[in-house]
Design a protein around this nucleic acid. Sequence first.
DNA 1: GTCTATATGCAGATAGAC
DNA 2: GTCTATCTGCATATAGAC
Lengths: 191, 191
Amino acid sequence: MSTKSQIIDTTAKLLETQGYHATGLNQIVKESGAPRGSLYYYFPDGKEQLAAEAVADRGRGIAQHISEQLARVEDPAESVYQLFLSLADHVENSACNGGAPLANVALEASARSERLREACHVAYQQMQQVVEQKLLTAAYAPERAKRLSTTVVAAIDGGIILSRARKSAEPLRQVAKEIKALLECTAKSGS
Amino acid sequence: MSTKSQIIDTTAKLLETQGYHATGLNQIVKESGAPRGSLYYYFPDGKEQLAAEAVADRGRGIAQHISEQLARVEDPAESVYQLFLSLADHVENSACNGGAPLANVALEASARSERLREACHVAYQQMQQVVEQKLLTAAYAPERAKRLSTTVVAAIDGGIILSRARKSAEPLRQVAKEIKALLECTAKSGS
DNA sequence: GTCTATATGCAGATAGAC
DNA sequence: GTCTATCTGCATATAGAC
């Protein structure tokens, strides 16, 4: 892996657990093992640019991960449910400090940096579209599939926040059940 | 209002929009108009203590706000729906930089400070219990009311994150519709 | 209770050698 | 491309006067 992508990857990981302002350039350099002098060579605009690229990279990664997870089960409701459960496992394995790679930056920087806000927005759109596409394979009306995909993404992030605060993946699993119920009980009614 | 509560209130507001690490003690002093020397007099443990008290205070505030909102409409599903809409208005009026007073701190500090994590957890529990109580006035099974209340709180925070990233309250309104659908379509089935 | 002054450290960023 | 040295500024926190 190239030095640049190594830096981006480490940054994304730190942003996920610590957030933007708590993550220092020094820490990124140290944990990535990248040469100190490379940082401003690859990212002339400094921390903001680096974070934006990390968010974009992680956004693509999650969207792909979600896509793969959803593809494993044919039924949309069940596939989304399994996605939640896999996320819950991930949250548990990361000691409840991970799982929502974008939420932290989105909240912190949406006001301060337009560049970061936009990066987060794009990443969320990608996640949402993947879910939406899966839902469209069922009998949902297009508008409703869009609303549902927004709800699924929101429920993921919200569930992870609660799980982190509680130091337990239980909230995420509870949310999983209800999202499944939502997808099932109204599957055929266009409403 | 006393100096102390003035400081707490300002801190809570800044934490909501900026998060923990981006909010400096200097800014708190300046914007609160409180005397500089008072800070460590009222909060000997410094920033961490101040933030924890701000979170606790805001937690009580939101729980009460939610309680009042839910009391305005008898039907649980409809009352929760109206709650979401009022939150969407609030997010819009704050230029999409507010609405989730706890999420930011919960994500940032859950790993670093046990004290802050616990404060967030308690605050979330209070919110959830208010919703749960409202749901119990309907025909939901107790266990399900708990799951649903978790889902509602998660959906609020997640919806607000998406709305902030998108600079529009639209995601929150979409989520609102689906949560309403969830509460309605399964009202009588204990599942 | 509140003030000012200050200690100490680390942040992000830059310059210039190699 | 990568290095080291350094600039500047702000962060939290403390000391001691009033």
